[in-house]
Design a protein around this nucleic acid. Sequence first.
DNA 1: AAATAGTTTAATCAAATGATTAACGCGCAA
DNA 2: TTGCGCGTTAATCATTTGATTAAACTATTT
Lengths: 204, 204
Amino acid sequence: MEKNKDAEKDIIEAARKVFITKGFSSATTRDIAKEANVNIAMVHYYYRSKENLFDIIFEEAFKTLISSILDATNSNIALFEKIELIIHNYINTLISNPYLPNFIVNEITQNPERIEKKFKDKDIYNKVFKRLSEDIENETIKGTIREINPISLFMNILSMCIFPFLAKPIFKWVFEFGESYYGELLEERKKIITEFVINAIKKC
Amino acid sequence: MEKNKDAEKDIIEAARKVFITKGFSSATTRDIAKEANVNIAMVHYYYRSKENLFDIIFEEAFKTLISSILDATNSNIALFEKIELIIHNYINTLISNPYLPNFIVNEITQNPERIEKKFKDKDIYNKVFKRLSEDIENETIKGTIREINPISLFMNILSMCIFPFLAKPIFKWVFEFGESYYGELLEERKKIITEFVINAIKKC
DNA sequence: AAATAGTTTAATCAAATGATTAACGCGCAA
DNA sequence: TTGCGCGTTAATCATTTGATTAAACTATTT
Protein backbone atom coordinates (compact mmCIF):
# COMPACT_ATOMS: atom_id res chain seq x y z
CA MET A 1 0.00 0.00 0.00
CA GLU A 2 1.60 3.22 -1.13
CA LYS A 3 1.38 6.47 0.77
CA ASN A 4 -1.30 8.90 -0.20
CA LYS A 5 0.12 12.36 0.29
CA ASP A 6 -3.24 13.96 -0.39
CA ALA A 7 -5.17 12.17 2.31
CA GLU A 8 -6.03 15.37 4.11
CA LYS A 9 -7.44 16.96 0.96
CA ASP A 10 -9.15 13.75 -0.10
CA ILE A 11 -10.95 13.60 3.22
CA ILE A 12 -12.25 17.16 2.86
CA GLU A 13 -13.52 16.44 -0.62
CA ALA A 14 -15.14 13.22 0.48
CA ALA A 15 -16.67 14.96 3.48
CA ARG A 16 -18.07 17.68 1.25
CA LYS A 17 -19.71 15.13 -0.98
CA VAL A 18 -21.04 12.91 1.78
CA PHE A 19 -22.23 15.62 4.17
CA ILE A 20 -23.91 17.66 1.47
CA THR A 21 -25.77 14.73 -0.02
CA LYS A 22 -26.65 12.91 3.21
CA GLY A 23 -26.68 15.61 5.87
CA PHE A 24 -24.86 15.52 9.18
CA SER A 25 -26.82 12.82 10.96
CA SER A 26 -27.09 10.41 8.05
CA ALA A 27 -23.45 10.75 7.09
CA THR A 28 -20.98 8.47 8.86
CA THR A 29 -17.23 8.74 9.28
CA ARG A 30 -17.04 5.38 7.57
CA ASP A 31 -18.86 6.80 4.55
CA ILE A 32 -16.37 9.60 4.37
CA ALA A 33 -13.33 7.39 4.87
CA LYS A 34 -14.54 5.02 2.18
CA GLU A 35 -15.26 7.84 -0.25
CA ALA A 36 -11.76 9.18 0.38
CA ASN A 37 -10.14 5.74 0.10
CA VAL A 38 -8.68 6.15 3.53
CA ASN A 39 -8.71 4.37 6.88
CA ILE A 40 -11.37 5.55 9.33
CA ALA A 41 -8.75 6.60 11.86
CA MET A 42 -7.30 9.01 9.30
CA VAL A 43 -10.45 11.09 9.45
CA HIS A 44 -9.95 11.60 13.15
CA TYR A 45 -6.20 11.98 12.80
CA TYR A 46 -6.62 14.99 10.52
CA TYR A 47 -9.90 16.46 11.74
CA ARG A 48 -10.36 15.28 15.33
CA SER A 49 -14.09 14.66 15.11
CA LYS A 50 -17.02 14.29 12.76
CA GLU A 51 -18.45 17.53 14.12
CA ASN A 52 -15.23 19.40 13.44
CA LEU A 53 -15.10 18.20 9.88
CA PHE A 54 -18.73 19.04 9.38
CA ASP A 55 -18.22 22.60 10.62
CA ILE A 56 -15.57 23.16 7.98
CA ILE A 57 -17.87 21.96 5.22
CA PHE A 58 -20.83 23.87 6.53
CA GLU A 59 -18.98 27.17 6.84
CA GLU A 60 -17.59 26.78 3.35
CA ALA A 61 -21.03 26.04 1.94
CA PHE A 62 -22.69 28.90 3.74
CA LYS A 63 -20.12 31.39 2.53
CA THR A 64 -20.48 30.15 -1.03
CA LEU A 65 -24.17 30.92 -1.01
CA ILE A 66 -23.95 34.24 0.81
CA SER A 67 -21.00 35.74 -1.03
CA SER A 68 -22.79 35.19 -4.29
CA ILE A 69 -25.27 37.90 -3.35
CA LEU A 70 -22.75 40.24 -1.78
CA ASP A 71 -20.91 41.09 -4.98
CA ALA A 72 -23.97 41.85 -7.07
CA THR A 73 -25.65 43.95 -4.43
CA ASN A 74 -22.64 46.19 -3.89
CA SER A 75 -22.13 47.06 -7.54
CA ASN A 76 -22.88 50.61 -8.66
CA ILE A 77 -25.66 50.13 -11.17
CA ALA A 78 -29.31 51.09 -11.46
CA LEU A 79 -31.89 49.12 -9.49
CA PHE A 80 -33.35 47.15 -12.37
CA GLU A 81 -29.91 46.11 -13.59
CA LYS A 82 -28.92 45.28 -10.06
CA ILE A 83 -31.94 43.05 -9.62
CA GLU A 84 -31.12 41.32 -12.88
CA LEU A 85 -27.50 40.85 -11.81
CA ILE A 86 -28.44 39.47 -8.40
CA ILE A 87 -30.80 36.95 -9.95
CA HIS A 88 -28.39 35.87 -12.66
CA ASN A 89 -25.44 35.54 -10.30
CA TYR A 90 -27.43 33.69 -7.73
CA ILE A 91 -28.99 31.19 -10.08
CA ASN A 92 -25.58 30.59 -11.65
CA THR A 93 -24.20 29.82 -8.21
CA LEU A 94 -27.11 27.50 -7.53
CA ILE A 95 -26.71 25.70 -10.83
CA SER A 96 -23.08 25.06 -9.91
CA ASN A 97 -24.03 24.02 -6.38
CA PRO A 98 -27.53 22.61 -6.61
CA TYR A 99 -27.40 20.73 -3.31
CA LEU A 100 -26.25 23.63 -1.16
CA PRO A 101 -29.66 25.18 -0.43
CA ASN A 102 -31.01 21.93 0.89
CA PHE A 103 -27.93 21.28 2.92
CA ILE A 104 -27.89 24.74 4.48
CA VAL A 105 -31.60 24.94 5.16
CA ASN A 106 -31.63 21.48 6.71
CA GLU A 107 -28.74 21.85 8.99
CA ILE A 108 -29.72 25.29 10.20
CA THR A 109 -33.23 24.14 10.92
CA GLN A 110 -32.00 21.18 12.93
CA ASN A 111 -29.28 23.14 14.69
CA PRO A 112 -29.88 26.90 14.63
CA GLU A 113 -27.19 27.54 17.24
CA ARG A 114 -24.52 26.53 14.80
CA ILE A 115 -25.06 29.53 12.59
CA GLU A 116 -25.10 31.87 15.57
CA LYS A 117 -21.85 30.49 16.91
CA LYS A 118 -20.00 30.39 13.64
CA PHE A 119 -21.14 33.57 11.91
CA LYS A 120 -21.06 36.31 14.47
CA ASP A 121 -20.56 38.99 11.83
CA LYS A 122 -24.10 39.01 10.55
CA ASP A 123 -23.73 42.78 10.11
CA ILE A 124 -21.92 42.06 6.88
CA TYR A 125 -24.90 40.24 5.49
CA ASN A 126 -27.29 42.77 6.93
CA LYS A 127 -25.36 45.62 5.33
CA VAL A 128 -25.78 44.05 1.91
CA PHE A 129 -29.49 44.23 2.33
CA LYS A 130 -29.39 47.84 3.51
CA ARG A 131 -27.59 48.83 0.34
CA LEU A 132 -30.34 47.31 -1.77
CA SER A 133 -32.89 48.89 0.54
CA GLU A 134 -31.52 52.37 -0.21
CA ASP A 135 -31.68 51.76 -3.93
CA ILE A 136 -35.33 50.77 -3.62
CA GLU A 137 -36.16 53.82 -1.56
CA ASN A 138 -34.52 56.13 -4.09
CA GLU A 139 -36.47 54.68 -6.98
CA THR A 140 -39.67 54.90 -4.98
CA ILE A 141 -39.07 58.61 -4.35
CA LYS A 142 -38.30 59.11 -8.01
CA GLY A 143 -41.66 57.47 -8.70
CA THR A 144 -40.32 54.84 -11.08
CA ILE A 145 -41.46 51.92 -8.94
CA ARG A 146 -44.39 51.15 -6.70
CA GLU A 147 -44.01 51.35 -2.95
CA ILE A 148 -42.73 48.06 -1.62
CA ASN A 149 -41.20 46.91 1.62
CA PRO A 150 -37.56 46.10 0.75
CA ILE A 151 -37.59 43.03 2.94
CA SER A 152 -40.57 41.67 1.04
CA LEU A 153 -38.90 42.28 -2.28
CA PHE A 154 -35.70 40.69 -1.07
CA MET A 155 -37.55 37.65 0.23
CA ASN A 156 -39.53 37.33 -2.98
CA ILE A 157 -36.45 37.38 -5.16
CA LEU A 158 -34.55 34.88 -3.02
CA SER A 159 -37.60 32.64 -2.77
CA MET A 160 -38.11 32.43 -6.52
CA CYS A 161 -34.41 31.77 -7.13
CA ILE A 162 -33.82 29.15 -4.44
CA PHE A 163 -37.06 27.25 -4.01
CA PRO A 164 -37.03 25.49 -7.40
CA PHE A 165 -33.72 23.96 -6.35
CA LEU A 166 -35.07 22.85 -2.99
CA ALA A 167 -38.23 21.37 -4.45
CA LYS A 168 -36.61 19.95 -7.55
CA PRO A 169 -37.48 16.30 -6.83
CA ILE A 170 -41.10 17.22 -6.20
CA PHE A 171 -41.51 19.35 -9.31
CA LYS A 172 -39.75 16.75 -11.41
CA TRP A 173 -42.12 14.15 -10.09
CA VAL A 174 -45.35 16.10 -10.44
CA PHE A 175 -44.65 17.46 -13.90
CA GLU A 176 -42.69 14.44 -15.12
CA PHE A 177 -39.69 16.55 -16.06
CA GLY A 178 -36.42 14.90 -16.99
CA GLU A 179 -33.18 15.96 -15.39
CA SER A 180 -31.92 17.85 -18.43
CA TYR A 181 -35.23 19.59 -19.04
CA TYR A 182 -35.32 20.73 -15.44
CA GLY A 183 -31.84 22.13 -15.98
CA GLU A 184 -33.06 24.16 -18.94
CA LEU A 185 -36.00 25.37 -16.94
CA LEU A 186 -33.74 26.62 -14.16
CA GLU A 187 -31.58 28.37 -16.70
CA GLU A 188 -34.61 30.08 -18.23
CA ARG A 189 -35.74 31.25 -14.83
CA LYS A 190 -32.98 33.85 -14.74
CA LYS A 191 -34.85 35.84 -17.36
CA ILE A 192 -38.31 34.89 -16.16
CA ILE A 193 -37.76 35.93 -12.57
CA THR A 194 -36.10 39.17 -13.60
CA GLU A 195 -39.04 40.14 -15.81
CA PHE A 196 -41.52 39.00 -13.20
CA VAL A 197 -39.95 41.11 -10.49
CA ILE A 198 -39.53 44.20 -12.63
CA ASN A 199 -43.11 43.98 -13.86
CA ALA A 200 -44.26 43.58 -10.28
CA ILE A 201 -42.59 46.73 -9.02
CA LYS A 202 -42.45 49.00 -12.07
CA LYS A 203 -44.99 51.79 -12.23
CA CYS A 204 -46.82 52.09 -15.49
CA MET B 1 -48.95 1.33 36.46
CA GLU B 2 -52.35 1.85 34.94
CA LYS B 3 -53.23 0.90 31.41
CA ASN B 4 -53.04 3.51 28.75
CA LYS B 5 -55.78 2.75 26.29
CA ASP B 6 -54.62 5.45 23.90
CA ALA B 7 -51.09 4.16 23.44
CA GLU B 8 -51.55 3.64 19.73
CA LYS B 9 -52.74 7.20 19.22
CA ASP B 10 -50.14 8.60 21.59
CA ILE B 11 -47.39 6.95 19.58
CA ILE B 12 -48.62 8.46 16.34
CA GLU B 13 -48.75 11.90 17.89
CA ALA B 14 -45.33 11.50 19.38
CA ALA B 15 -43.97 10.21 16.09
CA ARG B 16 -45.44 13.17 14.28
CA LYS B 17 -43.74 15.57 16.63
CA VAL B 18 -40.38 13.79 16.73
CA PHE B 19 -40.10 12.92 13.04
CA ILE B 20 -41.16 16.36 11.85
CA THR B 21 -38.77 18.22 14.12
CA LYS B 22 -35.79 15.88 13.88
CA GLY B 23 -36.20 14.12 10.56
CA PHE B 24 -36.09 10.40 9.96
CA SER B 25 -32.43 9.70 10.61
CA SER B 26 -32.08 11.87 13.70
CA ALA B 27 -35.27 10.61 15.28
CA THR B 28 -35.02 7.44 17.37
CA THR B 29 -37.64 4.99 18.47
CA ARG B 30 -36.61 5.82 22.02
CA ASP B 31 -37.37 9.50 21.41
CA ILE B 32 -40.80 8.58 20.19
CA ALA B 33 -41.50 6.12 23.00
CA LYS B 34 -40.42 8.66 25.58
CA GLU B 35 -42.50 11.42 24.01
CA ALA B 36 -45.51 9.09 24.05
CA ASN B 37 -44.83 7.90 27.62
CA VAL B 38 -44.70 4.37 26.40
CA ASN B 39 -42.29 1.45 26.42
CA ILE B 40 -40.04 1.15 23.38
CA ALA B 41 -41.44 -2.23 22.51
CA MET B 42 -44.88 -0.67 22.18
CA VAL B 43 -43.75 1.30 19.18
CA HIS B 44 -42.87 -1.94 17.41
CA TYR B 45 -45.89 -3.74 18.72
CA TYR B 46 -48.24 -1.25 17.06
CA TYR B 47 -46.24 -0.17 14.03
CA ARG B 48 -43.76 -2.95 13.29
CA SER B 49 -40.82 -0.71 12.43
CA LYS B 50 -39.49 2.82 12.56
CA GLU B 51 -39.74 3.00 8.77
CA ASN B 52 -43.37 1.94 8.84
CA LEU B 53 -44.27 4.57 11.38
CA PHE B 54 -42.38 7.18 9.44
CA ASP B 55 -44.23 6.39 6.24
CA ILE B 56 -47.53 7.05 7.97
CA ILE B 57 -46.36 10.44 9.21
CA PHE B 58 -44.80 11.34 5.90
CA GLU B 59 -47.86 10.50 3.86
CA GLU B 60 -50.07 12.43 6.21
CA ALA B 61 -47.77 15.46 6.04
CA PHE B 62 -47.50 15.37 2.28
CA LYS B 63 -51.25 15.21 1.84
CA THR B 64 -51.74 18.09 4.23
CA LEU B 65 -49.55 20.33 2.10
CA ILE B 66 -50.87 19.20 -1.26
CA SER B 67 -54.58 19.19 -0.47
CA SER B 68 -54.32 22.76 0.65
CA ILE B 69 -53.76 23.82 -2.95
CA LEU B 70 -56.24 21.42 -4.49
CA ASP B 71 -59.34 23.05 -3.05
CA ALA B 72 -58.44 26.60 -4.00
CA THR B 73 -57.39 25.72 -7.52
CA ASN B 74 -60.60 23.89 -8.34
CA SER B 75 -62.93 26.65 -7.25
CA ASN B 76 -64.93 28.50 -9.91
CA ILE B 77 -63.69 32.05 -9.59
CA ALA B 78 -61.78 34.53 -11.73
CA LEU B 79 -58.01 34.15 -12.04
CA PHE B 80 -57.02 37.02 -9.80
CA GLU B 81 -59.34 35.89 -7.03
CA LYS B 82 -58.15 32.36 -7.49
CA ILE B 83 -54.55 33.44 -7.10
CA GLU B 84 -55.46 35.32 -3.96
CA LEU B 85 -57.33 32.32 -2.59
CA ILE B 86 -54.48 29.93 -3.32
CA ILE B 87 -51.97 32.17 -1.57
CA HIS B 88 -54.17 32.81 1.44
CA ASN B 89 -55.11 29.17 1.89
CA TYR B 90 -51.58 28.00 1.46
CA ILE B 91 -50.01 30.44 3.87
CA ASN B 92 -52.70 29.64 6.41
CA THR B 93 -51.84 25.97 6.11
CA LEU B 94 -48.17 26.77 6.51
CA ILE B 95 -48.77 28.95 9.55
CA SER B 96 -50.61 26.04 11.14
CA ASN B 97 -47.89 23.60 10.07
CA PRO B 98 -44.67 25.61 9.88
CA TYR B 99 -42.35 22.61 10.01
CA LEU B 100 -43.96 20.64 7.22
CA PRO B 101 -42.12 22.21 4.28
CA ASN B 102 -38.76 21.49 5.80
CA PHE B 103 -39.76 17.98 6.69
CA ILE B 104 -41.12 17.17 3.25
CA VAL B 105 -38.32 18.78 1.29
CA ASN B 106 -35.67 17.08 3.42
CA GLU B 107 -37.03 13.63 3.31
CA ILE B 108 -37.81 13.69 -0.38
CA THR B 109 -34.34 14.96 -1.18
CA GLN B 110 -32.72 12.22 0.86
CA ASN B 111 -35.05 9.54 -0.38
CA PRO B 112 -36.79 10.46 -3.66
CA GLU B 113 -37.99 6.89 -4.21
CA ARG B 114 -40.32 7.18 -1.25
CA ILE B 115 -42.56 9.68 -2.95
CA GLU B 116 -42.65 7.65 -6.14
CA LYS B 117 -43.62 4.49 -4.29
CA LYS B 118 -46.21 6.05 -2.05
CA PHE B 119 -47.92 8.55 -4.32
CA LYS B 120 -48.52 6.85 -7.60
CA ASP B 121 -51.50 9.04 -8.43
CA LYS B 122 -49.53 12.11 -9.35
CA ASP B 123 -52.12 12.78 -12.05
CA ILE B 124 -54.34 14.24 -9.37
CA TYR B 125 -51.75 16.85 -8.51
CA ASN B 126 -50.92 17.40 -12.13
CA LYS B 127 -54.56 17.96 -12.96
CA VAL B 128 -54.79 20.71 -10.40
CA PHE B 129 -52.09 22.56 -12.21
CA LYS B 130 -53.74 22.05 -15.59
CA ARG B 131 -56.88 23.70 -14.29
CA LEU B 132 -54.90 26.77 -13.28
CA SER B 133 -53.07 26.59 -16.57
CA GLU B 134 -56.33 26.91 -18.50
CA ASP B 135 -57.39 29.91 -16.48
CA ILE B 136 -54.13 31.61 -17.29
CA GLU B 137 -54.47 30.87 -20.98
CA ASN B 138 -57.99 32.27 -21.07
CA GLU B 139 -56.93 35.52 -19.45
CA THR B 140 -53.98 35.80 -21.80
CA ILE B 141 -56.28 35.47 -24.80
CA LYS B 142 -58.61 38.06 -23.31
CA GLY B 143 -55.56 40.31 -23.06
CA THR B 144 -55.97 41.07 -19.39
CA ILE B 145 -52.61 39.59 -18.43
CA ARG B 146 -49.17 39.37 -19.95
CA GLU B 147 -48.03 36.17 -21.57
CA ILE B 148 -46.51 33.90 -18.98
CA ASN B 149 -45.62 30.25 -18.81
CA PRO B 150 -48.10 28.74 -16.31
CA ILE B 151 -45.40 26.57 -14.80
CA SER B 152 -43.28 29.61 -14.08
CA LEU B 153 -46.17 31.42 -12.46
CA PHE B 154 -47.03 28.37 -10.41
CA MET B 155 -43.44 27.98 -9.27
CA ASN B 156 -43.16 31.65 -8.42
CA ILE B 157 -46.25 31.64 -6.26
CA LEU B 158 -45.30 28.48 -4.42
CA SER B 159 -41.75 29.73 -3.95
CA MET B 160 -42.79 32.98 -2.37
CA CYS B 161 -45.28 31.26 -0.09
CA ILE B 162 -43.10 28.41 1.12
CA PHE B 163 -39.53 29.64 1.14
CA PRO B 164 -39.92 32.11 4.04
CA PHE B 165 -40.97 29.15 6.18
CA LEU B 166 -38.00 27.07 5.07
CA ALA B 167 -35.50 29.85 5.60
CA LYS B 168 -37.09 31.22 8.74
CA PRO B 169 -34.07 30.65 11.02
CA ILE B 170 -31.77 32.35 8.52
CA PHE B 171 -33.99 35.37 7.99
CA LYS B 172 -34.59 35.71 11.71
CA TRP B 173 -30.85 35.65 12.27
CA VAL B 174 -29.84 38.05 9.51
CA PHE B 175 -32.53 40.62 10.20
CA GLU B 176 -32.68 40.08 13.96
CA PHE B 177 -36.39 39.38 13.88
CA GLY B 178 -38.13 38.02 16.96
CA GLU B 179 -40.40 35.01 16.73
CA SER B 180 -43.61 37.00 17.03
CA TYR B 181 -42.52 39.64 14.55
CA TYR B 182 -41.66 36.95 12.04
CA GLY B 183 -45.15 35.58 12.56
CA GLU B 184 -46.67 38.94 11.70
CA LEU B 185 -44.46 39.18 8.66
CA LEU B 186 -45.65 35.82 7.38
CA GLU B 187 -49.24 36.87 7.95
CA GLU B 188 -48.70 40.08 5.98
CA ARG B 189 -47.18 38.17 3.13
CA LYS B 190 -50.59 36.85 2.10
CA LYS B 191 -51.48 40.31 0.89
CA ILE B 192 -47.97 41.22 -0.28
CA ILE B 193 -47.50 38.16 -2.45
CA THR B 194 -50.99 38.48 -3.94
CA GLU B 195 -50.35 42.08 -4.97
CA PHE B 196 -46.87 41.26 -6.17
CA VAL B 197 -48.09 38.47 -8.42
CA ILE B 198 -51.04 40.38 -9.81
CA ASN B 199 -48.87 43.40 -10.56
CA ALA B 200 -46.38 41.13 -12.24
CA ILE B 201 -48.87 39.59 -14.65
CA LYS B 202 -51.52 42.27 -15.10
CA LYS B 203 -51.40 44.24 -18.32
CA CYS B 204 -51.62 47.99 -17.87
C1' DA C 1 22.66 2.28 9.90
C1' DA C 2 20.10 4.22 13.59
C1' DA C 3 17.02 7.42 15.40
C1' DT C 4 13.20 10.42 14.97
C1' DA C 5 8.86 12.30 13.56
C1' DG C 6 4.98 11.95 10.86
C1' DT C 7 1.56 8.88 8.67
C1' DT C 8 -1.28 4.74 8.24
C1' DT C 9 -3.42 0.44 9.58
C1' DA C 10 -6.13 -3.19 12.00
C1' DA C 11 -8.28 -4.05 16.04
C1' DT C 12 -11.04 -2.67 19.58
C1' DC C 13 -14.04 0.14 22.78
C1' DA C 14 -18.17 2.19 24.44
C1' DA C 15 -22.37 4.11 23.47
C1' DA C 16 -26.49 4.37 20.78
C1' DT C 17 -30.08 2.20 18.49
C1' DG C 18 -33.66 -0.78 15.91
C1' DA C 19 -35.60 -4.78 17.03
C1' DT C 20 -36.95 -9.00 19.64
C1' DT C 21 -38.13 -11.98 23.45
C1' DA C 22 -40.00 -13.95 27.49
C1' DA C 23 -42.55 -13.03 31.21
C1' DC C 24 -46.20 -10.60 33.44
C1' DG C 25 -50.84 -8.64 34.16
C1' DC C 26 -55.26 -7.26 33.24
C1' DG C 27 -59.98 -7.97 31.56
C1' DC C 28 -63.32 -11.04 30.07
C1' DA C 29 -65.72 -15.22 28.41
C1' DA C 30 -66.60 -20.02 29.48
C1' DT D 1 -62.31 -19.81 39.18
C1' DT D 2 -59.89 -20.93 35.16
C1' DG D 3 -57.95 -19.92 30.95
C1' DC D 4 -57.33 -17.23 26.94
C1' DG D 5 -55.77 -13.15 24.48
C1' DC D 6 -54.37 -8.60 24.18
C1' DG D 7 -51.45 -5.10 26.07
C1' DT D 8 -47.26 -3.99 28.55
C1' DT D 9 -42.74 -4.30 30.59
C1' DA D 10 -37.76 -5.11 31.45
C1' DA D 11 -34.05 -7.28 29.64
C1' DT D 12 -31.39 -8.43 25.96
C1' DC D 13 -29.49 -8.92 21.12
C1' DA D 14 -27.05 -7.56 17.05
C1' DT D 15 -25.53 -3.94 14.46
C1' DT D 16 -23.90 0.56 13.67
C1' DT D 17 -20.97 4.15 14.66
C1' DG D 18 -17.79 7.84 16.66
C1' DA D 19 -13.67 7.45 18.62
C1' DT D 20 -9.21 5.49 20.39
C1' DT D 21 -5.10 2.66 20.69
C1' DA D 22 -0.98 0.27 19.79
C1' DA D 23 1.67 -1.28 16.41
C1' DA D 24 3.60 -0.89 11.85
C1' DC D 25 5.28 1.62 8.10
C1' DT D 26 7.72 5.55 5.60
C1' DA D 27 10.56 9.36 4.90
C1' DT D 28 13.99 12.27 6.57
C1' DT D 29 17.75 13.49 9.47
C1' DT D 30 22.01 12.42 11.89
